[in-house]
């Protein structure tokens, strides 16, 4: 359950640049959110009067650096296109932090975190890895090809044991990151493992199946079209064993076994 307060304010863009291919990184001045946010939570950003980009757009909180908030995004449609046009020094209307994030283990509990990121799915997981400081972590990053691997350096800086999977085999394991997950689990064993995953739906579905087969807890971060992002419109409902739940409120992070695929 989300316990932290939600803020709406005008944030100043400190930095907004392309990091590689279609991937961009923005740094925003957002002390209210930075001091408050939990990994897995998101923000809703408004790009101003624009008939093509009418609604706000949700973005995962990628990293928190002091009073700054970092957003990692891929330019895919008109919303992210509008984002990429915003210049440092400019401002954006932001609401956050929103949603229910990853549940962190109690400090005393011995767990072996395995973080699984597919494509843009790395976005909320770097913040998570940081919050899991002091616990040895394995991170599996999946991408189509070596040029699209995101955040390898960031995870390594957080002392994560990073493994790479590429669809074309241009780096690391050749194949899907879900297959790499199977291989890794058979190496490290299933005892005390806790999976945290974010990425495209087919990946999360496979992670849920692996989690169920080996009885490993898995927390997965889902995506759905959103209108309000604050739980009012019921537009982002997903089907769970407890009925429809809101991705923006009960989620975006769910226990994998709750989801009806």
């Amino acid at each position: 359950m989300r316990l932290n307060k939600t803020f709406q304010f005008i944030t100043r863009i400190i930095e907004n640049r392309k990091i590689k291919a279609t991937y961009w990184r923005a740094l925003l001045a957002a002390p209210q959110i930075a001091s408050n946010a939990l990994p897995g939570q998101f923000v809703q950003i408004w790009f101003g009067n624009n008939q093509e980009v009418f609604l706000r757009r949700p973005f995962s909180i990628h990293r928190v650096r002091g009073e700054r908030l970092e957003i990692l995004y891929q330019v895919l449609g008109s919303g992210t296109e509008a984002f990429s046009k915003k210049k440092p020094g400019g401002s954006l209307d932001i609401i956050g932090p929103l949603g229910s994030g990853f549940k962190l283990p109690a400090a005393t509990r011995k767990i072996k975190p395995v973080i699984v990121a597919g494509g843009m799915g790395v976005a909320p997981l770097v913040f998570l890895a940081k919050k899991l400081a002091g616990i040895p972590k394995r991170v599996l990053i999946g991408a189509k090809t070596s040029g699209q691997i995101l955040c390898e350096k960031e995870f390594k800086e957080l002392d994560c044991d990073v493994k790479i999977a590429t669809d074309d085999g241009s780096r690391g394991f050749k194949g899907y990151v879900s297959d790499l997950l199977k291989k890794e689990l058979s190496d490290i064993g299933y005892q005390s493992v806790q999976i945290y995953a974010c990425g495209p739906e087919p990946l999360l579905k496979k992670v849920a199946a692996i989690s169920s087969k080996h009885n490993i807890p898995a927390q997965i971060s889902l995506e759905e079209h959103m209108a309000c992002g604050i739980g009012a419109c019921l537009g982002c409902a997903i089907n769970t064993h407890a009925g429809f739940q809101r991705v923006c409120k009960e989620g975006p992070v769910f226990d994998a076994k709750e989801i009806v695929w």
Partner: peptide, 10 residues
């Protein structure tokens, strides 16, 4: 069932 919402021009 979802999807339940979709943005259109304005």
């Amino acid at each position: 069932p979802s999807p339940r919402t979709c943005e259109t021009p304005s």
